[in-house]
């Protein structure tokens, strides 16, 4: 298994955020992680990246426990994380932001940059502009492009559609599928449940720091509880 979370518990001080999360991502999969605000989606991604350390449980990458691995070395193991809110380096140009994505290994900067510019022609036009001056959609493209620069095997995406116009969301989702087709496994956190489930092979629904539901994208899309909670549909009870 590429990524495995085994009963992971994380807390902020005394407040528990994850209460024994079990989750798996196989090579080549798109897995989506759904849930309400505060359910623990971002916390899950930040724990995988080593920005937060589990109080209990273990996270495995290729069967190798990550608890003793420094966070900054994870990108070298093939994990790249597109954080919530994009977190583009505002004072660096588009090109410098992409270079940051290749910080751990500078050998493939040229091909990487070309690949990103092919995927997002808009970024090529803005190559010398500061990250902070880009629109929200362009920043999201840059954040994804930056994450691709490290040639990941697993990409963690935290709410890439947040605050974006529908047309741009469409582009972003198409690119996620394209990245996945190129062999990158994707763990996608989304509020936008319908779109996420449409492109995902499997999904998990988090509630109060635990996995409440899991299944294939299609099954979850058809599940009454999912429809009620995340798609805003009124399902008559009984």
């Amino acid at each position: 298994m590429l990524l495995e979370l085994a009963d992971v518990e994380v807390s902020y001080g005394a407040i528990p955020a994850l209460r024994g999360v079990r989750l798996e991502v196989a090579e080549g999969e798109i897995v989506t992680l759904l849930g309400a605000n505060g359910a623990g989606k971002t916390t899950t991604l930040r724990s995988i990246s080593g920005l937060l350390r589990p109080r209990r449980g273990e996270i495995y990458l290729d069967g190798r426990p990550l608890s003793s691995i420094p966070a900054h070395t994870l990108v070298g193991l093939g994990v790249s994380h597109v954080p919530e809110g994009r977190r583009v380096f505002a004072g660096m140009t588009v090109r410098e932001n992409l270079l940051m994505g290749a910080y751990h290994d500078r050998r493939h900067v040229r091909e990487g940059t070309e690949r990103v510019f092919t995927l997002f022609p808009r970024l090529a036009e803005r190559a010398s502009q500061l990250g902070g001056t880009l629109s929200g959609g362009e920043q999201q493209m840059l954040a994804i492009g930056r994450a691709l620069m490290s040639r990941p095997r697993l990409m963690l995406l935290d709410e890439p559609s947040m605050g974006l116009a529908p047309r741009i969301i469409q582009t972003i989702f198409e690119v996620i599928v394209e990245i996945n087709r190129a062999g990158v496994a994707v763990l996608l956190v989304e509020q936008n449940a319908v779109q996420a489930l449409r492109i995902a092979h499997r999904g998990y629904v988090l509630e109060n720091g635990q996995v409440a539901l899991t299944g294939s994208g299609a099954d979850l899309l058809a599940d009454d509880r999912v429809r009620q909670a995340y798609l805003g549909e009124d399902i008559p009870t009984g």
């Binding site: 420094p70 990108v75 954080p83 940051m100 910080y103």
Partner: peptide, 9 residues
């Protein structure tokens, strides 16, 4: 935080 994600020690 984001620097760490990029592999910066």
């Amino acid at each position: 935080d984001t620097a760490v994600l990029m592999g910066v020690n």
